[in-house]
Simulated assay, not measured.
Amino acid sequence: MTLLIVGATGTLGRQVARRAIDEGYKVRCLVRSTKKAAFLKEWGAELVRGDLCYPHTLTEALTGVTAVIDASTSRATDSLTIQQVDWEGKVALIQAAQAAQVERFIFFSILDADKYPNVPLMEIKRCTELFLAESGLNYTILRLAGFMQGLIGQYGIPILEAQPVWVTGESSPIAYMDTQDIAKFAIKALSVPATEKQAFPVVGTRAWSAEEIINLCERLSNKDAKVTRMPLNLLRTVQKFLRFFQWGWNVADRLAFTEVLASGRPLNAPMDEVYKIFDLDKEQTTTVESYLQEYFSRIMKKLKELDYEKNKAKKQKNKKTPFKQSSSS
Results as ranks from 00 to 15, higher is better:
Asn233Asp: 13
Phe241Cys: 12
Lys226Gly: 03
Asn222Ala: 10
Arg236Trp: 10
Arg206Cys: 12
Trp249Met: 08
Trp208Ser: 02
Arg254Gln: 13
Leu234Gln: 10
Lys223Trp: 01
Asp253Ala: 03
Asp224Ser: 11
Ser209Leu: 03
Ala225Arg: 02
Asn233Ser: 14
Glu218Val: 02
Asp253Gly: 02
Asn222Ser: 13
Arg243Phe: 13
Glu212Asp: 08
Leu235Gln: 10
Arg219Ala: 11
Phe244Thr: 15
Leu235Cys: 09
Gln239Ser: 14
Asp253Asn: 06
Thr228Ala: 07
Gln246Leu: 07
Asp224Val: 05
Ile214His: 00
Leu235Arg: 06
Val227Met: 03
Leu235Thr: 10
Gln246Ile: 13
Arg206Gly: 10
Asn215Thr: 13
Thr258Val: 08
Cys217Asn: 03
Cys217Arg: 01
Ala225Pro: 00
Leu235Phe: 12
Ala256Ile: 06
Asn215His: 11
Leu220Asn: 03
Val227Pro: 00
Val251Asn: 04
Asn250Gln: 14
Leu255Ile: 14
Leu235Trp: 09
Glu211Asn: 06
Ala210Tyr: 05
Thr258Ser: 07
Ala252Tyr: 08
Lys240Tyr: 13
Gln246Lys: 10
Ser209Asp: 02
Cys217Glu: 04
Ile213Asn: 02
Leu255Trp: 03
Phe257Tyr: 15
Ala225Leu: 01
Phe257Thr: 15
Val251Met: 09
Phe245Trp: 11
Pro231Val: 07
Phe244Cys: 12
Glu211Asp: 13
Val251Gly: 00
Ala225Thr: 00
